[in-house]
């Protein structure tokens, strides 16, 4: 018998004895809101506000707390000047990006040597880049997170290896909360999920030394979200 069969056998044997359900009182019936198969956690999670403006304001508030640089702009032109200003401020010499609807429109104005991560690329070259510029699948008001996948954001490493991660997003990519983000993933990718899906919530951080917050532990020290 294989180990798989042995382990599954032990599990089936163990489960012959039924365990009581958590917090079961009285008749032990479970209200429908606690049935994990049909209940959405939305009613328990933090409130987000109904209108898009409220949600954008919440994302902005969360960004301040997380130390994400969130720039809410009105046009592609403004986005272009914002990224050029970043280049000058941070003194970028070389950047990495993937091609996409937004990066193709915004990034040529940078006039810098580029590394593209759409196809096979050299990781040591990526490591030398000053910034990684990517798109995203969504950004989430409730938590201040950016949702990326390796399909939408130029692979697994682009959004985490360079010291500065810049995300380009459209305003309509805002989703209210985490349940909405998972609904979006299911709808967009369904049976063929990208092999990596990541919720990025602020720049990389650690508190492992005396619980004092330090940004840029292994991932980017800076996270900029340019939304237009």
């Amino acid at each position: 018998m294989s180990e798989r069969e042995k382990i599954l056998g032990r599990i089936r044997e163990a489960l012959k004895v039924e365990a009581h359900r958590p917090g079961a009182h009285g008749d032990g019936k479970r209200p429908a809101v606690f049935d994990p198969k049909i209940s959405s956690p939305r009613k328990w999670l933090p409130l987000v506000g109904d209108s898009v403006d409220e949600q954008l304001a919440l994302f902005a508030k969360n960004s301040v707390e997380l130390k994400t640089d969130f720039q809410l702009l009105n046009s592609a032109d403004e986005a272009r000047s914002a990224i050029v200003a970043l280049r000058d401020r941070e003194n970028w010499k070389r950047i990495a990006l993937h091609s996409g609807e937004l990066t193709n429109v915004i990034c040529p104005s940078l006039n810098l040597p580029l590394l593209r991560t759409d196809k096979n690329y050299d990781v040591t070259e990526l490591e030398k880049c000053d910034a990684g510029i990517s798109e995203c699948d969504a950004f989430i008001a409730q938590t201040g997170s950016v949702l990326v996948t390796n399909r939408s954001a130029g692979g697994r490493a682009l959004s985490v290896l360079p010291p500065h991660h810049v995300v380009l997003a459209r305003r309509d990519q805002l989703v209210a909360d985490l349940p909405a983000a998972f609904e979006l993933l299911k709808k967009k990718y369904g049976a063929n999920y990208p092999s990596m899906i990541s919720f990025i919530t602020g720049p990389s951080r650690t508190g492992d030394i005396e619980r004092i917050l330090v940004l840029g532990a292994h991932g980017p020290k800076q996270l900029t979200v340019i939304c237009f």
């Binding site: 999920y193 990596m196 990541s198 919720f199 990025i200 919530t201 990389s204 991932g219």
Partner: peptide
Amino acid sequence: QALTCYNTMYS
């Protein structure tokens, strides 16, 4: 934290 910095799903 509201969410930790990286929550990543691999398939």
